[in-house]
Design a protein around this nucleic acid. Structure first.
Lengths: 120, 120
DNA sequence: CGCAGTGGTGAAAAGAATGTGAAGGAAGTT
DNA sequence: AACTTCCTTCACATTCTTTTCACCACTGCG
């Protein structure tokens, strides 16, 4: 069984904290449990877009608009691919956590949750 | 004996509340007692259609029209099947509640009611 | 009581959307 | 020019959703 992080989004200086996730907005750096995730610029921006409304579903179109601007081309997969790599990098640091959740047919939701059996 | 939820439909932001049921229209998310019900898009839409007139009977044809558009094909069971899964998912979270009621020969009625003997 | 129509359900079939590895290219560096 | 990093795109794999079907239970009525 899973349970959500009992953590409220926090914003000090220009650092946004969400569970073990920490976004240094100014530096465009993401840390997980204090470890630098070395996201690329785009990856960071996508993650930041999801941060807009933590624990709420955000559509691909919405993410696309915030990161690339303009309307998302039909069948564009850019968002998905970046989410994949974000998951990969964050997961490498904290395998027992799940950060980005897929909402089929709609979009993604950012919300750090502990996964049972951190091993995959 | 049963009794209806002593709750009036509420609408804040884009969230509709009906007893323990909460529909986040924008996110297409349904929560029961605060727990995410993870309905699929169609399931959510059907539930939303029933929401149109809470505590009132809504015909299958009506639901069909709102969700799929157009006239419901003769003997189509799509609505029934989705209602079944909605009940299943909501019931899994709150077994002591009954949300969707069948009106034989007519349609369905959405209205959260406490069921005696939460066990099934 | 038996029939005909309606609704409940599990499961298979069909359809979509998302996950993913890899290729290709642009831009910056050495 | 060769190398590196990052972004985008593509094709295929995988997973999830929706539709359809078949069979059974239930309702209402003659």
């Amino acid at each position: 069984m899973n349970h959500a992080a009992a953590t409220t989004p926090t914003l000090q200086d220009d650092t946004l904290s969400l569970g073990p996730l920490e976004l240094r907005l100014g530096d465009r750096e993401a840390l997980v449990s204090g470890v630098r995730a070395s996201l690329t610029v785009r990856e960071f921006e996508v993650l930041e877009a999801l941060t807009e409304r933590p624990d709420r579903v955000i559509t691909r179109e919405d993410v696309y608009g915030r990161v690339w601007g303009g309307r998302m081309p039909y069948r564009d997969r850019a968002v998905d691919v970046h989410v994949k790599r974000i998951r990969q990098k964050l997961g490498a640091i904290a395998p027992e956590w799940t950060f980005v959740h897929t909402h089929f047919g709609i979009g993604y939701r950012l919300s750090p949750e502990v996964t049972d059996g951190g091993q995959q």
